[in-house]
């Protein structure tokens, strides 16, 4: 369902819907920068030239993606970004022995099926599944609305088994209360005090793990994220 949704939006972007295209790019920006960094084997920020090359390649992927060929859009865009960057390295005599320079392509020439399959295979070997990547990107996007970054979650994560189980109980309690869920989604905030008063869970624990709780609640509210949900052992 989600896949078809993505395909639809890509199709719509392909057909000239600039807003849709912009949305797809925005949504996948973390992915693009991650792929670019991965290929360059160094951290790339948006101010780097490699990032804009990756962005252009991604944009190109939107134009050339064909859902019917049975591959995910993310692996396809990875493939294109990889190619674009390799070309860029060649042009600039960018020497990095660790780079895979297997592919020689002309920028204008279209990819052969073999090349694409090979690249996608490499990608698949690395990544557990492209659905998981999409889930993560989606979660990242939603958390962004709550002002939560992934790197902040370590601090809010429970360190002990007891706390973790307590948090699972709290999450379970929370998602079964539609009023609370409504408030969380609409106001983008966790009503810690009210919740603590209502349920009797220690406010201190809730406050300490607030961001983690929100993350877990959001994952729980998206059962369609099959892979991510396996990380939340609620119930």
């Amino acid at each position: 369902m989600e896949n078809s949704h993505i395909e639809q939006s890509i199709q719509s972007a392909k057909n000239g819907n600039e807003l849709e295209r912009q949305q797809i790019i925005n949504r996948n920006k973390p992915y693009i920068i991650n792929v670019v960094s991965h290929i360059c084997r160094k951290f790339i920020s948006w101010s780097d030239e490699e990032a804009s090359i990756g962005l252009l390649a991604f944009n190109h992927a939107i134009d050339t993606f064909e859902a019917s060929k049975g591959r995910s859009f993310l692996s396809y865009s990875y493939c294109l970004i990889n190619r674009a960057l390799v070309n860029y390295f060649r042009k600039n005599k960018y020497h990095n022995q660790n780079l895979s320079l297997d592919y020689v392509f002309n920028e204008e020439s279209s990819l052969t099926g073999e090349e694409i399959n090979k690249s996608i295979q490499i990608y698949r070997e690395k990544v557990e599944s492209s659905e998981l990547v999409e889930e993560i990107l989606e979660l990242d996007r939603i958390l962004n609305d709550y002002g939560i970054k992934f790197e902040e979650l370590e601090r809010a994560s429970p360190k002990h088994k007891d706390t973790r189980e307590l948090i699972y109980r709290i999450v379970h309690k929370y998602i079964n209360d539609t009023e609370l869920v409504q408030e969380l989604i609409e106001k983008k905030r966790f009503p810690a005090t009210a919740f603590a008063r209502k349920t009797g869970y220690p406010l201190k624990t809730i406050e300490k793990h607030r961001k983690y709780l929100i993350t877990m609640i959001i994952i729980s509210l998206h059962p369609e994220w099959v892979h991510l949900s396996s990380y939340v052992k609620i119930k």
Binding site: H38, K42, K126, V127, S129, S130, I136, S157, L228, V232
Partner: peptide, 22 residues
């Protein structure tokens, strides 16, 4: 994200850039 559902920040070495989902 760890199998137990907690998050973990690991120091990154300079050339180490794993893909998301890896």
């Amino acid at each position: 994200i760890m199998p137990d559902g907690s998050f973990k920040n690991v120091k990154r070495s300079k050339t180490q850039v794993p893909l998301i989902g890896e």
